[in-house]
Amino acid sequence: MSSLQGVCRGFMAFSAILLLSQPVVANENVVGRAALSPEAALASDEGVARDRQLASPLQLPAKTRSILGLPNANVGPEAFGAGGHPFTTQRASRSDGIEPVNSYPWRAVGKLIMTFGNQRAVCTASVIGKSLLVTAAHCVHNYGSRDEGFATAISFQPARHEGQKPYGVWTGKEWWIPKVYHEGQDTCLPQAPGVVCANDVAVIVLNENDGKMIGDVTGVLNLPPLNNDTDKEDSYGYVFFLGQNATQLTQLGYPSKDFDGLTMIRTDSLAYFEDPSNVILGSNQTGGSSGGPWLQNFGTPTSATGPAPSAEQIDTVSAVTSWGYNSGTVKVQGASRFSRNQIYTEKTNIRSLVGDACAANPNVC
């Protein structure tokens, strides 16, 4: 049966330092929450992937249905080859070891373990500041559930590989989500409310570990370059190609539905703009990959000594995994773009979240 997967929900932690009973509303668009018990995040390093599933291609955006050759009505299963989006999905590490996952930039990505009530679940996150992660909002909050929707504990395992945790386990201190996600008022497809939305993005502030910040241990991935005079940040790396605003992206994640959830998985695919403020790529990743980074110019610098390919900035996160659709022949995933939109009109959603997290914790960015 066709299914649209939320590709994992997450959980976050509450700190004994702040002991907040209510979330912090830093501005009209952002809600933050502090951790109550970081130790609770260490109780287990496993969990189940929680999928948000839709059963019909009609719940995909109309342009995506057209591009993939999917039906515009419920006419039965799609014929093999009727749709498709080219991609490659393979493990990021060697078949006989952890390399290169234990090297930068791979090691700035890790497995996220979250707790809602008595249930553990898993997502993926990546390091974008000295003590700052980016993930999907649905990894730290149940859409529209307001204060009750927040998770209660979170831990992060950078470069997790099978039984190895080469850079330790880090606990969450605070997490920040869009206020419209908190209240269930985000801009979403009417046929996929709470799933295909414009602002499924969150940032997490981590506690230090042995007096160190995680960015000093793993390295830090980039955000799209900030330029207040142009729309460059909103469309960084995209060009008009075959009728679409498109770019090549690398997706990293720890899918655990139909995967082991313990090894990093890499997907490379052409991606394009979609409504509402989404990006679509082809991928075989599944539940557990939510919150994983979608990277432009991924890798290490080339050794070219002559005129090298133009890359203004490498290892740039411009979206995180949000949802997926898998019909058996068509396999795509979507993400809320790091962009300005109907909610975030002055600066992008990611810059607003990071700005408030950094204002509350000046040393983490």
Results as ranks from 00 to 15, higher is better:
Lys165His: 11
Phe87Glu: 11
Gly172Asn: 01
Glu162Ser: 14
Thr171Val: 05
Ser103Tyr: 08
Gly117Trp: 01
Ser126Lys: 00
Gly84Val: 09
Gly97Ile: 12
Gly149Pro: 01
Gln90Val: 15
Val169Leu: 12
Gly172Trp: 10
Gly117Tyr: 07
Ala136Thr: 02
Trp176Met: 13
Asn102Ala: 13
Thr115Pro: 00
Arg91Pro: 13
Ile177Met: 10
Glu99Gln: 13
Pro166Trp: 05
Ala151Glu: 06
Ile98Met: 11
Val109Gln: 05
Thr135Gly: 00
Ile113Trp: 00
Gly163Tyr: 04
Arg91Leu: 14
Phe87Val: 08
Val169Asn: 05
Gly184Leu: 06
Ala159Asp: 05
Gly84Ala: 05
Trp106Leu: 04
Tyr167Ala: 06
Ala153Tyr: 04
Pro166Met: 03
His161Met: 08
Ala125Ser: 13
Thr115Phe: 08
Gln90Trp: 02
Arg91Met: 10
Ser93Cys: 12
His138Phe: 12
Cys123Trp: 05
Arg94Val: 02
Gln157Pro: 02
Cys188Tyr: 03
Gly149Arg: 06
Ala159Cys: 10
Cys188Val: 04
Ala151Leu: 11
Lys179Ala: 13
Tyr143Asp: 09
Pro193Leu: 10
Val101Ser: 11
Val140Pro: 03
Ala125Asn: 01
Thr187Ser: 12
Cys139Phe: 07
Ala151Val: 07
Pro178Met: 05
Thr135Leu: 07
Lys173Glu: 12
Phe150Ala: 15
Gly84Pro: 10
Gly97Cys: 02
Lys179Thr: 10
Ile154Asp: 13
Ile177Leu: 03
Tyr167Val: 00
Leu112Trp: 14
Val134Glu: 09
Val169Ile: 14
Phe150Thr: 06
Ala137Ile: 00
Tyr104Thr: 01
Trp176Lys: 00
Cys188Trp: 06
Glu148Asn: 14
Trp106Arg: 03
Ala136Pro: 01
Leu189Gln: 03
Arg107His: 01
Asp186Pro: 01
Ile98Trp: 09
His85Lys: 13
Pro86Asn: 11
Lys173Ile: 04
Thr124Asp: 06
Asn118Thr: 11
Ala82Lys: 09
Val109Ser: 03
Lys130Leu: 11
Ile128Ala: 08
Thr135Tyr: 03
Glu162Val: 14
Leu133Gln: 07
Gly149Lys: 00
Phe150Lys: 06
Ser155Trp: 05
Thr115Met: 10
Leu189Asn: 00
Ser126Gly: 15
His85Asp: 14
Trp176Gly: 01
Trp170Tyr: 02
Ala125Trp: 04
Tyr167Glu: 07
Gly144Asn: 10
Tyr104Asp: 06
Ile177Arg: 12
Gly184Pro: 01
Tyr143Cys: 03
Asp186Cys: 11
Ile154Tyr: 15
Leu189Tyr: 09
Gly163Val: 15
Pro166Gln: 15
Pro178Arg: 09
Asn142Lys: 13
Glu99Phe: 13
Gly83Leu: 05
Thr115Lys: 15
Lys179Gln: 13
Ser93Lys: 08
Thr124Trp: 06
Glu162Thr: 07
Tyr143Ala: 08
Lys130Asp: 14
Ser126Cys: 14
Glu174Phe: 11
Leu112His: 06
